[in-house]
Amino acid sequence: MKTKKTISALMIAGLLTATPALAEEKPVLTVYTYDSFASEWGPGPAVEKGFEASCGCDLKYVTAGDGAALLSRVMMEGTHGKADVVLGLDMNLMAQARNTGLFAEHPKIDAEYTLPIAWEDPVFVPFDWGYFAFVYDKTKVKDVPTDFKALAASPLKIIIEDPRSSTPGLGLLMWVKSAYGDGAAQVWKDLADNIVTVTPGWSEAYGLFLKGESDMVLSYTTSPAYHLIAEQDDSKAAAPFTEGHYLQVEVAAKMAGAQQSDLADSFLTYLTSSDVQAVIPETNWMYPAITPAAGLPTGFGTLITPDKALVFPPAEAKKVRDEALSEWLSALGR
């Protein structure tokens, strides 16, 4: 009886606390990433398995909500953090991250990036990318707007994310600003009556859209691929906009204070390998930074491919977004 109690107490303790690694002699590479990357449905498990097969190490993820939360945590920890690699920042966060001086240059990586823009950065290694877009249901929306002005003039209802709490929300802010410059405020004023609501994050917005609360939702051009490949549902599509689409490039970098500097270097190289790149499309539902030799999964061929990629250089991003945010706030009625 007593033994039983002890055993169950131990089991409970095991459930609640981290168990020390069994093979303690193995070095541990700590990768900070956003939650959905490391989750069961993200690329995390496959990347971990693949890297551990060759590195003779133990890869351990530590997660934060998303890219911005990740940077916030790294800045909070300063030089006392345990991170060797931070994975999941984007171009809007790059300048801020660089200025902290907490990140180190990456090793020479021999990769032919297939990004829509030229990439040369001593610190940040891109691992995937995507375009923001409005996603809709083809069976319900027949008159698909081809730019922001047409969307604003249409009776269509949209759900967007708040730029202050969400990455896609910030992406949309930058998208309108890069397409319209000084005219962005007017575009937002015209869009005001199309916006059903503004949600804290992508999950809420997309969930409400699937429930039928709006005709369109701000997401990615790659979102329809999920429905097509995982659900055999071809009813979702992204609307191509003639202004071009705003680009999001997701990057990883090594910490200057990394305890496992060599392992971190080889992990960054591994990220650009075809092993990882082939996993990205159907787990992160983004485009891989380097198209694998075998090509993209079939469903990806049906996606819209914008002619024009809009993006602010990282160094300008901070100034632009502060200005764009105050325009957004006043246009949407505060």
């Binding site: 939360a69 916030s72 709490s165 609501t197």
Partner: peptide, 21 residues
């Protein structure tokens, strides 16, 4: 979500903004 936009900005949202924006 139910407030329909930035008019419904609460202190908690401002805290989010301060931390991560």
């Amino acid at each position: 979500t139910l407030g329909g936009g930035p008019r419904a900005t609460t202190v908690e949202l401002a805290i989010y903004q301060a931390f991560r924006f």
